[in-house]
Design a protein around this nucleic acid. Sequence first.
DNA 1: TGCAAAGAAGGAAGAATGTTCTGAATGATC
DNA 2: GATCATTCAGAACATTCTTCCTTCTTTGCA
Lengths: 154, 154
Amino acid sequence: MNIRIDDLDRKILGELQVDASRSLDEIAKSVGSSKTPVWNRIKKLREAGVIRNQTVNLDPEALGFEACFFVLIRTSEHEAAWQDSFLRALQERPEVQEAHRLAGDIDYILKVRVQNARAYDAFYQALISEVRVYNVTALLSMEEIKSTNALPLG
Amino acid sequence: MNIRIDDLDRKILGELQVDASRSLDEIAKSVGSSKTPVWNRIKKLREAGVIRNQTVNLDPEALGFEACFFVLIRTSEHEAAWQDSFLRALQERPEVQEAHRLAGDIDYILKVRVQNARAYDAFYQALISEVRVYNVTALLSMEEIKSTNALPLG
DNA sequence: TGCAAAGAAGGAAGAATGTTCTGAATGATC
DNA sequence: GATCATTCAGAACATTCTTCCTTCTTTGCA
């Protein structure tokens, strides 16, 4: 699974992060190479799992998702069985865009995207009925200042 | 700018969210339609800004980004000039993947992706030297349980 | 109900792009 | 310095995109 990633690979990934719909010729020109090596490297990076998938970024508000919450969760339960059911609940809920297990006194953080505050409450009620949590704090986003999942490869 | 989005549009967007590299024919088959209407609708959705751009999702750890922090920021300054310089600082820093202005006693939350803890400290020092902040709490992610920016269109 | 307008299906055709292949060049190893 | 393996540039082929057209269905309105 280990793979050697050189400077040209990073340039290609940088281009794909900005716009994955460009043609191989354009990308090759941008990174100062030609079509064949770019194609071979993209294939290699895909097979190695460095490139996971190719998606479109949608405008959440245009599709009716007006509310975004960051949810800080504390729990007193740390057994494997509890954790398994918690993780499964998060995976199954499409409102949960991100979930991280944290170090420190807060155990988990979630990013939850929903239509409105009522939809968040429905999500919250469903979650706490499925798994026991000790303390939940919801932070409501008023403005999305920046949103990208591009890595700084420059 | 307003656009009417029907069920077929949502199905198409759902397919594109999962895998934007599939051909029009395949997508048309998946949503139970044919090539022409699918192409027209994708074009319409792109022009309306519902589809923002097309990118690849990379494996952060494979590229050496082993640390992810959520940063909670409180500030006592709420003037426009301070806010402008703060926003500009966030936009310019590629480590900042997400930035939200919040309601409540915490003013901002950031998601910061860096190589390691030392790189985070460098980022932190640079940030507080640029803009005054009252209080900063960093939450260190131990495990990325879930990560997607797909909207629940089903 | 009937009429007009809009959109969908299906296919055809040219342009653009993806994918494979080959010979040349480059660099590493001994 | 010779040999081997790897990579690159460009050609050649295959697929897909994009546009256009015709027919048919659906939608909206009088």
